[in-house]
Design a protein around this nucleic acid. Structure first.
Lengths: 227, 227
DNA sequence: GCTAGGCTTTGACCCTGATCAATTCCCGAT
DNA sequence: ATCGGGAATTGATCAGGGTCAAAGCCTAGC
């Protein structure tokens, strides 16, 4: 792909590429591709051999895994600026551990793993950043596992709501869901029905107010108290 | 700590140190300490500032997290040769995300994170190995999350049993549990009672036979069929 | 404006696995 | 050999949340 300036600027804000000089960036771009995905199309499936990783430019990607009987668990939802599948560069078996699907119409850039590894060999800084990114993700997963095992559905949903607003918020806060509720439910390992019921319960308790995809947190301290 | 040959040999087989030359290894050892832990003693608690990572030399360490009301989830059990907490070297907030406790009497070596980062700056190979280790762990966590959310307790227990034996085993296989059943139960996010009941059920079905801490898998294909 | 199809919500019911409680088992210490 | 204490087992009960089914809503497209 050719290197126009807008794109270079965009990449400069991605943690993986932050430390690269223009020469290296250009090299990365040479092996990159722009990928346009219509809504609901699959990018890759779990188990497929992996030789490229991705950056979300526009839209949303969901990473999910399927059980044998077709149940779906959303592992992660990625937004513009996020990268994914870059950790696979270092796995023995270079296969995608999960499947990836576009939620809405989405535009990605894909990068060659082998080429990027070469860059890494030259840039200690980038190595360190990549490791930082990986350990952040690792930490996030550990957190998620404790949430799943130590707490119940209501707890997870409230945590999710509170994560959407600034830490210091005390007063009323507004949240807009840009992702279907059923996807968020799966992300939290809750059935859509249960998700809906919990929202209803929280509303009845006067803690939140739900209007379609907009949720007002009426009583933030009260929500925090639930945890 | 001083560098006797036996220890050097041991470190050479640890993935993090595999690629280091003797000079670097000696340097690592200079900032390392031998730590002896009596059974059940806490090494560190979640949230504590972290500046050292560890290698298990003898015994077993369990990594776990606690909910507010004291419920415990075992995240990982580490055996001799395993390292842990090394990913924290790259986290923004250098704090242990989980707590660590010795199961039996245990001997560890601890290493200075700052010192090891310097080594990493010199050894591309070691960086790559560390990244490989991190992505392996990341992958394992992702797997665990799908197990937790997509499958039930019996499934997880059977998966655990099958993981203990060679891939290609078809005939009868023997497993010895060197860790208390209750710890394994927590590792699988099952209550000890349920753990015991499932073992009983599998025995009744003629798939396994349990004698204290020894489990015989009588019908490996049958177990695989359960998945 | 109206219809169709996909989300979302609501209701009824059920099942897995958690909890509480009581034994029993196992092992090390006396 | 006996005792004591933690681990493991077993039984009874219960609740969170999953499943199935039906109805309600909303929006895109005609």
């Amino acid at each position: 792909m050719e290197a126009d300036q807008a794109l270079l600027d965009e990449l400069h804000h991605v943690y993986l590429f932050e430390e690269l000089d223009d020469e290296q960036l250009t090299r990365v771009l040479r092996n990159s591709q722009r990928v346009s995905l219509p809504a609901k199309s699959l990018l890759f499936e779990a188990g497929q051999p992996a030789d490229r990783f991705y950056l979300v430019h526009q839209g949303q990607i969901k990473l999910f895994s399927l059980s044998i009987d077709g149940d779906e668990k959303v592992m992660e939802i990625l937004y513009p600026g996020n990268t994914f599948a870059e950790a696979i560069m270092f796995m023995q078996a270079k296969r995608y551990p999960v499947s990836a699907q576009a939620l809405g119409d989405t535009v990605l850039y894909s990068f060659d793993m082998k080429g990027f590894r070469q860059i890494l060999e030259e840039s200690q800084q980038t190595c360190f950043r990549l490791m930082a990114g990986m350990s952040r993700r690792l930490h996030a997963r550990i957190n998620e596992i404790s949430n799943l095992t130590l707490h119940n559905a209501t707890y997870r949903l409230v945590v999710f709501l509170l994560e959407q607003i600034p830490e210091d918020a005390i007063e009323l806060a507004e949240i807009h869901l840009s992702t279907p509720k059923s996807v968020i439910a799966s992300r939290l390992s809750i059935q859509p029905e249960t998700f809906s019921r919990i929202l209803t319960r929280l509303s009845a308790a006067g803690l939140i107010e739900v209007k379609g995809n907009d949720i007002s947190l009426l009583d933030v301290p009260g929500l925090r108290d639930l945890l």
